[in-house]
Design a protein around this nucleic acid. Structure first.
Length: 480
RNA sequence: GGCCCCUUGGUCAAGCGGUUAAGACAUCGCCCUUUCACGGCGGUAACAGCGGUUCGAAUCCGCUAGGGGUCACCA
């Protein structure tokens, strides 16, 4: 595969959502795989909805995911600026050219007029396109109306009866007929170019060779093709990636649950897991390995293996992938990543005063049990708090034999010194053997006495965490 | 409604004219185990339908059905 120049061009009208992140990711992967260039630029021509804080959040999200870019917003580059509102003069030159060549014309129609026209067409034959009302205004008339203070938009003349072909890496060749579209607006009456026009110019001027984006843009592509042609620019290759759907097979939206990348961070998903999961949504590697590092995915990624059909976002799978990535973390790394989730919980104070050793014990006990890092909030409770025994635990503690066993255990345990979980495990084992008991009849009452519940992390870890005194104290308390 | 795209198990998906139609998640069962997890083993489960083309179709073509996208002075 030859080197590509690709780009991700979000509009800062909201947080980066899963779908956008996947588009960004695929572009990034293709660039890194081929040794090409990845550009990130901001499409903020919608003045009403664009917000700087969204731009910041999007950038943060991309970075969190582990993406970086060679050129664009934040990092700069020779083809800047990288915010469309800062490129207005550039666009103007080309609009002027198109106007002079009569490939485009001024349109004075009002939104109300156009709205009405569309409604009528929809009711009639369903063929919605601009009537061409302003396409033959004389130069004089145009001058007069502009002088009178009217603010026109600019439309591109669409040649009738022309076939347009989009060569698409994932769809194959898709054909469109210009007869199904009318002259469309390229500059709004406030002088700001419309997305379709600005993207083309940006892509050309920045040397983009492959336009990879969501499938919803496929039907926009013929319009963009027309702009490339009018301007005399060569067209890039395209790749329209299918959408990500919710469980009801509708385009994923808020009502399907969390949609923003940041929300997944807050829930305790690892960036490398989200990276891995998103890569697998619409793309599959050649081998059977699914849990992969960023490097492994880059090495294998290929646009030609991108799927045509839309994919349903499956939280179960994300959970699994996240769990796998947590398991693969080194203990030190895990400790580092888990910390903020604990510090932002009700255990904030406990964690701050906890010794490094204790924190390490906690981490080892929990590491392979978590689906999400945020789960530590629940899982840590048993270590850090005491709770009233639940029903099942109470029942176990009410049995006389269990009480007697616990008393003996406490006595022997008070004479036992330990430093590692393994030592505690063998101590319990020996205890069971010496008293000719069966394991379950020791462990379950002991667990009940110590934690008040009948399931949870391995007992030796809990005991090691508490140390001798706290452990004994818990047993005696339970026996009362 | 016009145009365009899509259709392999519940989900992600491999497959690119000849396969017992992979694998993963989920689910179910068994094993491991003090418990819950983890891990191991195994089971259930799919080519939307109909017509072609072909010695042979999940794979190629057509139609039908279903789903989706888009028809903005949003991107």
């Amino acid at each position: 595969m030859e080197k590509v120049t690709v780009r991700f061009a979000p509009s800062p009208t909201g947080p980066l959502h899963i779908g956008g992140a996947r588009s960004a990711l695929f572009n990034y992967l293709e660039a890194r795989h081929t040794g090409g260039r990845f550009i990130v630029r901001i499409e903020d021509t919608d003045l009403e909805r664009s917000k700087r804080e969204f731009e910041d959040e999007i950038i943060q999200s991309l970075k969190w995911l582990g993406l970086d870019w060679d050129e664009g917003i934040v990092v700069g580059g020779e083809n800047g600026p990288y915010r469309q509102t800062e490129r207005l003069e550039i666009y103007q030159q080309y609009v002027r050219k198109l106007l002079e060549e009569d490939q485009a014309y001024y349109c004075f129609c009002t939104e109300e007029e156009l709205e009405k026209e569309r409604e009528q067409q929809m009711a009639a034959d369903g063929l919605v396109r601009y009537s061409g009302k302003c396409s033959h205004l004389s130069r004089e008339e145009v001058q007069k109306r502009i002088a009178a203070g009217e603010k026109p938009a600019v439309r591109l003349r669409v040649p009738p009866g022309k076939q347009l072909e989009v060569h698409d890496y994932v769809r194959g060749d898709v054909r469109f007929d210009t007869d199904t579209m009318g002259d469309f607006i390229i500059v709004k009456n406030d002088g700001i170019p419309v997305y379709n026009f600005a993207v083309v110019l940006d892509d050309v001027l920045m040397g983009v060779t492959l336009v990879m984006r969501a499938e919803e843009h496929l039907s926009n592509t013929p319009r963009q093709l027309l702009i490339y042609q009018a301007l005399g620019f060569p067209t890039p290759a395209f790749a329209h990636v299918s959408l990500i759907l919710g469980s009801d097979h509708q385009k994923m939206s808020k009502r399907h649950g969390a949609t923003s990348v940041m929300a997944y961070r807050e829930m305790g998903y690892l960036p490398e897991a989200v990276f891995n999961f998103l890569a697998l949504l619409g793309w599959s590697p050649e081998g059977e390995q699914e849990i992969m590092t960023q490097e492994e995915i880059i090495a294998q990624f290929d646009v030609n293996r991108v799927s045509k059909s839309p994919a349903v976002f499956d939280l179960n799978k994300l959970n699994y992938i996240n769990q796998q990535h947590i398991k693969r973390l080194s203990l030190e790394e895990f400790k580092r990543r888990m910390r903020p989730y604990l510090e932002n919980s009700e255990f904030s104070e406990d964690i701050k005063t906890l010794s490094e050793e204790k924190y390490s014990v906690l981490a080892q006990a929990l590491k392979d049990r978590l689906v999400c890092l945020a789960d530590v909030k629940d899982q840590a409770r048993v270590f850090l708090r005491r709770q009233e025994p639940e029903k099942e635990a109470q029942e176990l503690l009410a049995i006389p034999e269990n009480q007697a066993m616990l008393k003996t255990f406490a006595e022997e345990f008070s004479a036992f010194d330990f430093q590692e979980a393994a030592e505690i495990k063998s101590f319990i084992k020996k205890f069971i053997k010496n008293h000719q008991l069966n394991a379950k009849n020791v462990y379950m009452p002991l667990r009940s006495a110590l934690t008040g519940v009948t399931h949870g992390p391995d007992l030796p870890w809990l005991i090691l965490f508490w140390d001798k005194q706290e452990t004994l104290d818990r047993i005696w308390t339970a026996l009362e």
